[in-house]
């Protein structure tokens, strides 16, 4: 089966990722379009192990915990050689993966529960966690945002849940733009600016990339209205929608630097919009 092998090579946002195991690895469908042969040394190496390790994090300091009132997502521990992760199943709240990440964030050991001798090391939320730490190895950030590419400009739309990211994607799609993704993106620095990439989701979608031409922080409004943001306000407003684990000063410093660069090179707008085609012309008229 295409989705069950002992090794996989992936390319996500131009990061080369290799998974390997002595057991059969199963990838969720969303990863399959991102399979790609790697010629050189991978940027991220993921050693996948069936079963549980013979160590625990009981003596380690818990530095971060992602949970809400109803469920636990993951916990992060500081260990001598890097970070340790305990990741929970989103349905059962039982431990789903235990992972070790080296201090350079380039090598993972992912221990997974086995089912019929098959392991799923990237099963959500482990995959997005790995992608998040992957962005910390380069000038890249992971965002809650949608992006529409009209063949010339990549327009990124970000906002709180319910602000209209998916609605905006539908409007731009109807206007002929390609939707890079409507929920999660990676912005990566290039020689000429910044590119926006999609990432594997729970559904199959081809890898896509667009130049980042403008950032719109959106909200619903009775009329279309736009305001250009500058300075620290632009940086903080965009950074708010970055996916981040702010327990480490170096992470925050790196994010602040990248978002300052993005905000200096790419216009950032506050956009109140009416959810119909009028916003497409409104945006284009105000970009000039």
């Amino acid at each position: 089966m295409e989705n069950q092998q002992k090794t996989f090579s992936l390319s996500i946002a131009d990061f080369a990722i290799q998974l390997h195991s002595e057991s059969l690895i199963e990838l969720e469908d969303g990863y399959l379009p991102f399979l790609k042969n790697i010629v050189n040394k991978p940027d991220i190496d993921i050693e996948c192990i069936a079963g549980w390790p013979d160590f625990s994090f009981d003596e380690s300091q818990k530095v971060f915990e992602a949970k809400n009132e109803v469920q636990k997502f993951y916990a992060i521990y500081s260990i001598n050689s890097g970070l340790g992760f305990v990741v929970y199943n989103q349905q059962t709240n039982e431990i789903q993966q235990i992972a070790l990440l080296n201090e350079h964030f380039t090598h993972w050991k992912v221990y997974s529960v086995t089912l019929d001798d098959i392991i799923m090391p990237l099963k959500y939320p482990m995959g997005p966690i790995i992608m998040h730490y992957m962005t910390l190895t380069s000038d890249a950030v992971m965002m809650h945002a949608s992006c529409a590419f009209d063949g010339e400009k990549g327009r990124m739309f970000s906002g709180f849940s319910g602000a209209g990211k998916s609605t905006m994607s539908m409007i731009w799609s109807q206007a002929g733009s390609q939707i890079v993704n409507d929920d999660r993106l990676i912005i990566r620095k290039t020689d000429n600016g910044f590119n926006v990439h999609n990432t594997p989701m729970y559904y199959k979608d081809m890898p896509k990339v667009a130049p980042l031409s403008a950032v719109y922080l959106i909200s619903h409004s009775p009329e279309n209205k736009i305001k250009k943001l500058a300075g620290a306000m632009a940086v903080t407003r965009v950074m708010a929608f970055c996916i981040q684990n702010n327990f480490d000063k170096q992470f925050i410093q790196k994010r602040l630097r990248i978002f300052t660069e993005i905000s200096m090179q790419v216009p950032v707008y506050d956009l109140g919009f009416v959810p119909n085609q009028s916003v497409v012309q409104f945006i284009k008229a105000h970009e000039a």
Partner: peptide, 18 residues
């Protein structure tokens, strides 16, 4: 963690949870 942007300063607190 602080960073200057022009005449302004952004400060971000360290945190141990989402």
């Amino acid at each position: 963690v602080a960073r200057k942007v022009g005449n302004e300063l952004i400060i971000v607190p360290l945190t141990d949870n989402v």
